[in-house]
Computed example of a mutant assay.
Amino acid sequence: MLTQQSAATVRATLPAVGAAIGEISACFYDRLFTAHPELLRDLFNRGNQAAGTQRQALAGSIAAFAAHLVERPDDRPDAMLRRIAHKHASLGIAPEQYEVVHEHLSAAIAAVLGEAVTPAVAAAWDEVYWLMANALMAIERQLYAKGGTGGGWREWEVVGRAEEAADVVVFELRPGDGGPVPVHRAGQYVSVQVTLPDGARQIRQYSVAGAPGSATLRIGVKRVHGGGTPDGEVSNHLHARVHVGDRLRVSAPYGDLVLDQDTDAPLLLASAGIGVTPMVAMLEQLVLRGHDAPVTVVHADRSPAGHALRADHEGFAAKLPDASVHVWYEQPEPGHPADRTGLVDLSALDVPSGTRAYLCGPLPFMRAVRAQLIGKGVAPADIHYEVFGPDLWLARD
């Protein structure tokens, strides 16, 4: 943890760093991409960069980590660090890249805050950065030992393609080298790298839609309409250009939103939109395992036509001995219950004591569901969630 001297310095300068975080982030990325344009081309999500959503992610996460160290010096936020490490491993982040980030982040802080960054201030924030970086690298080393060096990338062949719902395609993949499918846990995701028309090799993450043990992997890809920005350039590429017989570069499975292998506790699986994908995998695993405790399935979507993997979602739940399914649609079909129209409202649901909850969907959805579950007596430690996109740290609360 932080030395006492550094903790005092960080505590004193945290307000100034926090107030300038937007400017620091912009300066950092400008410096980073000027020095290393290949990182924007082949590693960072260009859509998030263009939309501005990733500009504050990295610097903001370090400031939040620093605040945590100062407020709770004996409590390292390991759950959040593991989530970020899984994302890094799925991208193949290497230890030397932490040096590159440190160089340009330190320069950005100094450039924005000027004379306020004394040698003591610089040393204290260096300590914060390397505490976080070293913790992440340690977790990533463990993940690489299991999944393969640098993310475990391999060439996979597309052996199936199904138009699953409005703007959702499910791809079935098989290792192109004839080797085995890597073992995953229900709820995990893989990274997919595609080469775009301008030569950029962009990477996105997609959850595996199935329990472990199959000779293939299925992933659900929702087309993202970017409104003129590069958002959705990978999903649109996959929808328009990738067909049976084509090959994709795919990582080993990663992600820490996974079911406890041996739990017999009541479960609640809540999803929205394409967040249904890991829930389908979990339900299939529960069926295969013979889970007989209560399972509450909650889902929110724009309409029944947009409810991806609906047959699997409801079908696996129906095979469980004590499962109930509750679906909310913003634009329901005629006859859909009025109290299941619009946003998810759990007030009328019976949530059994000791329930463990798993959430996947947009961040506002997960925050709302989490708050409702806590209000119903579910322990915060028993609520687990998956976040995609640049706001990993923002989901810590």
Rank of each mutant, 00 (worst) to 15 (best):
A67P: 07
V234G: 12
V121T: 04
Q331V: 10
G245T: 02
A67C: 08
A7C: 03
D391C: 10
L2F: 15
R370G: 03
T229R: 11
V325A: 14
R370P: 05
P253E: 10
P304Q: 12
Q188A: 05
A107V: 01
I139C: 11
G52H: 13
A209L: 04
V298R: 10
A7V: 01
A20E: 13
W156L: 01
A305Y: 08
V169F: 10
A63P: 06
V10G: 13
A165N: 09
A270K: 10
T9Y: 04
A57F: 02
E71D: 12
A317S: 11
H88Q: 02
D78H: 14
Q205M: 09
H86T: 01
G47L: 05
H291S: 02
D264L: 09
V168N: 13
D322G: 06
A85W: 05
D322P: 01
V258L: 09
N236M: 07
D260T: 11
E155V: 09
Q202G: 06
L268M: 05
V280L: 07
G227M: 03
Q331E: 15
Q49G: 15
G335E: 10
D264R: 15
S353Q: 08
M282F: 14
H313G: 14
A305S: 15
R201G: 08
A85H: 12
F28C: 11
K222V: 02
P15R: 00
T355H: 12
K146N: 07
T263E: 01
M137Y: 07
Y385S: 13
I219G: 00
A85Q: 03
L131M: 04
D75A: 14
V378Y: 05
A395L: 00
N134R: 11
Q142Y: 06
E127F: 01
R55T: 10
G375A: 10
P180Q: 15
F388Y: 03
Q56E: 14
A120W: 03
N45S: 14
R370N: 08
H104G: 12
L392E: 11
P77F: 11
A308G: 03
P334E: 15
V100G: 04
G354I: 01
A186P: 08
Q285E: 10
K319F: 03
A166Q: 12
V221G: 04
T296Q: 01
S324H: 08
R289V: 00
K87P: 03
G187K: 13
A318I: 05
P321Q: 12
R204F: 13
W328R: 07
A162L: 09
R154Q: 06
R55P: 04
A166R: 13
S106E: 09
E155G: 15
Y144W: 08
D264W: 06
Q56C: 11
W328F: 10
P230R: 02
K222S: 09
D262W: 12
S271H: 10
V234F: 13
L14D: 15
G255N: 09
G335W: 09
L268Q: 07
A7M: 03
R83S: 14
D262F: 13
V287E: 14
A133Y: 02
A8K: 08
H384W: 07
G213C: 08
V17N: 00
P321M: 14
V234D: 09
L257N: 15
S25A: 15
D262K: 12
Y206L: 04
P304K: 05
D78L: 12
P37N: 10
I109N: 11
D322F: 06
L343Y: 15
S214L: 08
